[in-house]
Design a protein around this nucleic acid. Structure first.
Length: 486
RNA sequence: CGGGGUGUAGCGUAGUCCGGUUAGCGCACCUGCUUUGGGAGCAGGGGGUCGGGAGUUCAAAUCUCUCCACCCCGACCA
């Protein structure tokens, strides 16, 4: 196994090395595509399970809508078209012909209306909602789907931006604006809990500016996270769509008072990009660090008995450790491969297993095990009787990982009022900068041009004539976070 | 689509300028033996349309032409 590049040497290279070496994923044959390998998929699966529970517990139902969308659907919402037109995969024909083993598109099979591979599903879902909604009794509709979507991006990176990715997309329809806004915010809280309580990733949450808002939304809330290179990653979004899609797809309902009324919408999603965030928030030069709650293996047991002494009894001892952990509902496995202990230690550190248990003859004879923490590197020998304390050790690790990420975020977030300092700081290092902004596209654009930093989100609105925009000096409307972003 | 670069075994590369043995090496892989508490050692072995095509030559990985693919920077995207 190759050694991975150090973070300080080349962070992007480190990121790619970790993914490939830890066996999370591999490149697909079509540019920008990715194969999620079993270890990566198991990680995704754990996150998915947690989030799916949250989604269902908050009253949403899973469903599945088609991958293919008629091109005309995308034309119906003006801003939505603008946002997605340039990155769509388009199906134009339905047949190939083979001549001497060479396949070419059969011109006679040209489709009358081209089909788009969904970049997101608002349009097809609202097409269906029109069929489903006629009365106030039909509302609200709260749908979620787990799906793949395709966005034909120019520059791709494993997990962060791939041509095809997996996600969940929630789509809801409501009778009132208030209810839709409440839903949008409730989802933001749900994501916050997913990130902070399960992925151990601290978040910065707020609305998007006009320029960064989702194509077709009235308001976009975003979950912003800080990677170890201090760049920002938008890790999830929740959109209040107003009546934009309801109007575009002519969805209306009759109220109790027999009045025709518009339908209000939300949509929200998180994707496999989250795995990218997880890697870049917690990882170190040894590799991944996976928070216990979502780790595929919370504990990995390494038996060390080179000469196979007392083989039967020794193996029994290892099995006992294994089953004791399983009884405590800990996800654990035994690495009984033929590799050397040193190889296994490094390998499981690379793969980010939170705890490792070494069982050698020494431990076997004394009725002990040696427990090693991935986050601190701390080793401790303990009697087998105490294995049940590992449940709380895992919780400690979970918390410690969040705390250390949170300290990192705080240490690299600055509040500034002076644009020269702002430019100076950003030219020196990446960081988050909290500052006041006048709310204009022009100021935001200029800042982006001059520093490459964008407004990640609006933290709060302000109304104090003494507060001035950091760029223009005009009266400030919002407190925002600026950062260079992925 | 502009500017630059690279194609040699699964991966990484030497050789290309200046044509000349059987295309070399590391990792990975296979077999065997010895090993195993922080990335094991030794021995043996398998694997190559040198990106494709055409040309020059007694002779091409090497020179010429051409096509293709990919990468980086920009543009685009977030």
């Amino acid at each position: 196994m190759a050694k991975i590049t150090k973070q300080s040497e080349n962070f992007s290279k480190w990121y790619t090395d970790v993914i490939l070496e830890a066996d999370l994923a591999d490149y697909g044959p079509v540019k920008g595509t990715m194969v999620i390998k079993p270890y990566g998929y198991s990680l995704w699966g754990n996150v998915k399970r947690v989030l799916n529970n949250m989604i269902e517990e908050t009253g949403h139902e899973n469903a599945y809508f088609p991958l293919f969308i008629p091109k005309s659907f995308l034309e119906k919402e003006a801003k939505h078209v603008e946002g997605f037109a340039k990155e769509c995969a388009v199906v134009t024909h339905s047949k190939l012909v083979s001549e001497d083993g060479i396949l070419t598109v059969d011109p006679s099979s040209k489709l009358e209306e081209e089909i788009i591979v969904r970049p997101t599903s608002e349009t097809i879902i609202w097409h269906m909602f029109k069929k489903w909604v006629t009365s106030y009794r039909d509302l609200p509709i709260k749908i979620n789907q787990w799906a793949n979507v395709v966005r034909w991006e120019m520059r791709t990176r494993l997990f962060l931006r791939t041509s095809e990715f997996l996600w969940q997309e929630g789509h809801t329809a409501h009778a009132t604006k208030e209810e839709a806004i409440k839903e949008t915010l409730m989802i933001v809280d749900m994501y916050k809990s997913l990130f902070e309580d399960h992925l151990a990733i601290p978040t910065m949450i707020g609305r998007k500016s006009n320029m960064e808002r989702f194509a077709g939304a009235d308001e976009t809330y975003s979950i912003e996270t800080m990677m170890r290179d201090k760049k920002a990653l938008q890790a999830g979004t929740s959109h209040y769509l107003g009546t934009n899609f309801g109007t575009a797809f002519d969805v209306k309902f009759q109220s109790k008072e027999n009045k025709e009324q518009p339908v209000f919408a939300t949509s929200w999603g998180v994707s496999t990009r989250m795995i990218g965030a997880l890697i870049m928030v917690h990882g170190d030069d040894k590799g991944l660090k996976i928070p216990p709650r979502i780790a595929p293996h919370q504990v990995v047991i390494i038996p060390i008995n080179p000469k196979n002494e007392e083989k039967k009894k020794f193996d029994n001892y290892v099995d006992t450790v294994h089953s004791m952990l399983k009884e405590s509902n800990i996800r654990c496995s035994i690495d009984s491969s033929n590799n050397s202990p040193g190889f296994k230690f490094n390998n499981w550190e690379l793969k980010g297993a939170p705890l490792r248990i070494d069982v050698g003859l020494k431990e076997f004879k004394s009725g002990n095990v040696t427990v090693c923490r991935r986050d601190t590197g701390e080793k401790q020998e303990m009697p087998i009787k105490s294995l049940n304390t590992l449940t709380s050790t895992l919780e400690d690790i979970q918390k410690a990982m969040y705390d250390s990420a949170n300290i990192f975020l705080e240490e690299n977030t600055f509040e500034l009022n002076d644009y020269n300092e702002f430019k100076k700081l950003l030219s020196k290092e990446n960081c988050f900068i909290k500052a006041y902004w006048d709310g204009s596209d022009a100021s935001e654009l200029k800042v982006k041009e001059q520093t490459k930093a964008t407004i990640r989100c609006i933290l709060e609105d302000v109304n104090d004539p003494n507060l001035k925009c950091i760029f223009s000096g005009e009266p400030a409307k919002h407190l925002v976070v600026f950062a260079k972003a992925y």
